[in-house]
Design a protein around this nucleic acid. Sequence first.
DNA 1: CGGCAAACCTGCGAGC
DNA 2: TGCTCGCAGGTTTGCC
Length: 276
Amino acid sequence: MPELPEVETVRRGLAAAMEGHVFVRAKMHRANLRFPFPDGFGQHLIGKTVKKLGRRAKFLLIIFDDGAVLISHLGMSGSYRIYDSSPPPLDKHDHVVFNISNGFEIRYNDPRRFGFMDLTTVTEMAEHPMLSKIGPEPICPRLSGPELAARLKGRSAAIKAALLDQSVIAGIGNIYASEALFMAGISPKLKASGVQGKRAEKLAAAIHEVLIKAIEAGGASLKDHRQTSGELGYFQHSFQVYGRAGRPCSVCGPGVLVSQITQSGRATFFCSRCQK
DNA sequence: CGGCAAACCTGCGAGC
DNA sequence: TGCTCGCAGGTTTGCC
C-alpha cells in the first residue's frame, strides 16, 4: 500500500472533491474492515460539512466544520475512488460509499481489509491511540539532520527497521526506506544508532527528496495504489533499488547488481557498493 | 523497554 | 489448465 506519498496523493484528490461540501449519505457494505466500524459511524457523518482534508503519517483525516474527524487508514490495499456521474456497479471490495452534496460518489475499496476507519474530534485527535505515538513528519516541516540523529540515538535495530518504525519518523514504509537509504549511501544493515552527524544529515535530505519527488509523481502504483481519479501514479518508474534485485545498480552500472535481503520479515533492496 | 515473528486478509505470479 | 506456495506498499500483538 500506500506510504506517505500515496496517502498524500489521495488526500489531495479527496480535498478537491470534498472540501466545502456536505456528506449526504454514508453506506457501509460490511460491518468491519480491520476493526468493526464504530457504532453509528455512517449516521454520525451525515449532514456534516467537510472543512479540510488532513494527513498525519499514513492516516487520512477528514475534518468537519463541527470539529468531528474521520480517521481513515488505507492499510496495504485500500484506495479511494471519486465518481462524478453514473458510477459503475459496486465492486466486491467497495466496502464504504460516501455521497456528497456536489453529486460526487466516493468509494473506499480495500481487498485485504487491513485498512480501518474511526471517529474522533479535533480536540481529542492527538490522544487517539493510533496517532498518539507517531514521530515527526519528515516533510513540511522538513525533518532536520540533528533531529533525525537524536531520534535514532540509542537504537540497536538496523537503520532500515528504524525507518519503518512510525514512532521514530512518520510515513516511511518499505519502498521509501530502501530508496532513501540508497540515496543517502547508507547500508540498511547499519545500526540505527550509527547514523549520526553528517550521515543523519544526508539521510534526512534523502528522505525529504524521495518523498517530495514521489508526491509530484502521484505516488507509486504497484498493485493497488491509484489516484482518486483512477489514474496510476508513476513514481515506480523512478525506483533505484526497490524491486530491482539482480539488476544493475543505476550508479555502478552492470558490474554491481542490486541485492535483496530480509530484515524483520520484510524485503530490503540495496547496492553493496554504494551503501556502506 | 527493545526487537522480532506472527497475525490480520485477499489476490497474483511463479513453479510444478 | 490447475493447484500450491510465497509474497505483497501496514500495524498491532505477544513473546523473548
